[in-house]
Computed example of a mutant assay.
Amino acid sequence: MTSSQALPPPTGRRAAAAACGADIQLHLMAGHIGDIPVPAQLTYTQADPYAVRLHCLTSPTTTVTWVLARETLRSGLRQASGLGDVLIRPAPGSGSVHITLGSGAEAAVLRADAAEIRRFLRLTERVVPHGAESLHLDVDTLIDQLRGTR
């Protein structure tokens, strides 16, 4: 994927797109060592309308993927948001957000450009408008998957 794009819908669909993605540059805040650049990609699909995936390239051959709520990403631009192993909050005095992944001593704190996050969220709005997520959730398939029948 290029830096930001909405993927075209399948033929005959009226939706603006069925998925989108954006390449972003994160910075691992490594204390006295300084910030370490972490190439990453945010992806979103209509098939999983509440979730955003953050794919972090941790080595030339390894990608770590975190799944987080789109609403957590959105509200984290304004105020601390999230529970458990994902916390997103505005960075004081800058145009950045801090994304904390994990907990305790093993937690990673990543800095992201808030404008890049906003651009990505606007792309997701073209896939599924905010507040319309439930219209795109296939509950029957989800139940079948949980029961192991599909």
Rank of each mutant, 00 (worst) to 15 (best):
G102N: 05
R13E: 11
P49D: 02
G34A: 12
R89I: 01
L137S: 09
I88A: 02
T45L: 02
S103F: 08
Y44M: 06
L137P: 03
S75M: 00
G34P: 09
D138Q: 11
L73Y: 00
P49T: 02
D144N: 12
L73A: 01
Q145R: 14
I143K: 11
T62N: 13
S75F: 00
A112D: 02
A91L: 11
T100D: 09
D144C: 06
G148C: 10
F120T: 01
T62L: 05
T58R: 13
L135Q: 13
E106P: 02
T65Q: 12
R78T: 08
A115I: 06
D85M: 07
H136D: 07
V97H: 04
D138L: 00
G148L: 13
V128K: 10
V109G: 06
T72R: 00
A15W: 00
T61Q: 09
W66P: 09
G102P: 03
P39Q: 12
D113V: 09
G21C: 08
G148D: 12
R70T: 00
S59Y: 07
R111D: 11
T58V: 15
D35S: 14
T141I: 11
L135G: 03
R147M: 15
V64G: 04
L146R: 15
L137F: 14
L28Y: 11
L135E: 13
L121Y: 03
G21W: 02
Y50F: 15
I24S: 04
I33T: 14
A40G: 13
S103P: 02
A6K: 04
H55W: 05
E116H: 01
L110K: 06
L68F: 08
A114K: 00
C56I: 08
L28F: 14
T149P: 03
L28K: 13
G131I: 09
D35A: 15
P8M: 05
L57I: 05
G131P: 11
P49C: 01
G95F: 07
I99W: 07
R147L: 15
T65S: 14
R126Q: 14
C20L: 02
A114G: 02
S75E: 08
V64A: 12
T11V: 08
L77C: 08
I24Y: 07
L68H: 06
A91C: 09
P10S: 04
E125Q: 10
I24V: 15
A108D: 12
A112K: 05
D85H: 13
A69C: 03
I36P: 09
V67N: 12
L42G: 00
R147N: 15
E125N: 10
D35P: 08
P10R: 08
P39D: 09
Q79M: 09
Q79R: 12
E133C: 05
T58M: 14
S81D: 04
R122Y: 01
H55F: 00
M1L: 06
L110T: 04
A114S: 11
G12W: 04
H32Q: 15
L87P: 00
R74W: 00
L73V: 03
Q145G: 07
W66N: 12
R78K: 05
A17Y: 01
A91I: 04
V139R: 14
H98F: 09
R14S: 10
L54R: 08
P37T: 13
I33P: 04
I33D: 10
R74A: 04
P10H: 04
P49W: 02
A30P: 06
V38Q: 11
A105K: 12
Q41I: 03
T141N: 12
A16S: 05
